[in-house]
């Protein structure tokens, strides 16, 4: 939970004079954590069903944005917590953590889902895509990311990664054919700053570019 309410939103990259930002510091910390887990995992590999105590960690292999991650996790770990706390991908946000706000929307096998209500163990063998996986290999923004920036479709930005993941899926599902349809199919993503009119504009604009 250390990073659950930091309000950083999408305003990352504000490096200070020393070359260290809070985000890069956190990223480094997470890297260390992953290394420790990986070491422990090699000495204590278990199949989930073989765990003797429910408190024993289980080996979980995840495919995130095309990269494999072998983790040793408490069975209670949600996909969201695996991403944020164990892999260091902090783009997906923890909002309500109850499936109501949509800030943790990610894609599993191309379908948008809620990372807070899915166990990490349950998405093994599936392809998970997060906001970090949306950007092109050359660092170019996805058309939806570009549209959110151009249409000022956020204020604090906390809900933005979830909004963008949901919006990309909304277009791919064919449910972005009118402002009304966008509003209905984006209703699972809440924005407390109420940037909704601009979000609808961004989705409709990006749809044109995604289909071009």
């Amino acid at each position: 939970m250390r990073n659950s309410n930091d309000g950083e939103g999408s305003r990352s990259g504000s490096a200070n004079g020393s070359g260290w930002s809070r985000r890069t510091f956190l990223g480094t910390s997470f890297g260390s954590t992953v290394a420790v887990v990986a070491l422990r995992d090699t000495g204590n590999a278990q199949s989930p069903a073989a765990a003797a105590s429910p408190r024993d960690k289980i080996a979980v292999s995840l495919n995130i944005n095309g990269k494999p991650h072998d983790l040793s996790l408490d069975s209670r770990t949600t996909l969201l917590d695996a991403l944020r706390e164990h892999i260091g991908l902090t783009g997906s946000k923890k909002g309500c953590d109850q499936g109501q706000c949509g800030a943790y929307t990610v894609m599993v096998d191309g379908q948008r889902v809620l990372g807070c209500l899915i166990l990490a163990a349950a998405v093994q063998g599936k392809e998970v895509t997060t906001i970090e996986g949306l950007t092109g290999a050359n660092g170019a923004l996805h058309p939806m990311q570009q549209a959110f920036a151009e249409h000022d479709a956020f204020q604090c930005g906390y809900c933005t990664p979830g909004q963008i993941m949901s919006a990309v899926a909304c277009v791919k599902e064919g449910h972005a054919n009118s402002a009304d349809e966008v509003r209905e199919y984006m209703s699972g993503n809440l924005c407390r700053c109420a940037a909704y009119p601009n979000i609808v504009d961004a989705v409709l604009d990006a749809k044109t570019k995604m289909e071009a």
């Binding site: 989930p48 069903a49 765990a51 105590s53 429910p54 289980i58 069975s75 209670r76 166990l119 349950a122």
Partner: peptide
């Protein structure tokens, strides 16, 4: 959440 055994069928 309480600890549990995770079994995949």
């Amino acid at each position: 959440m309480r600890p549990f055994h995770y079994v995949k069928a």
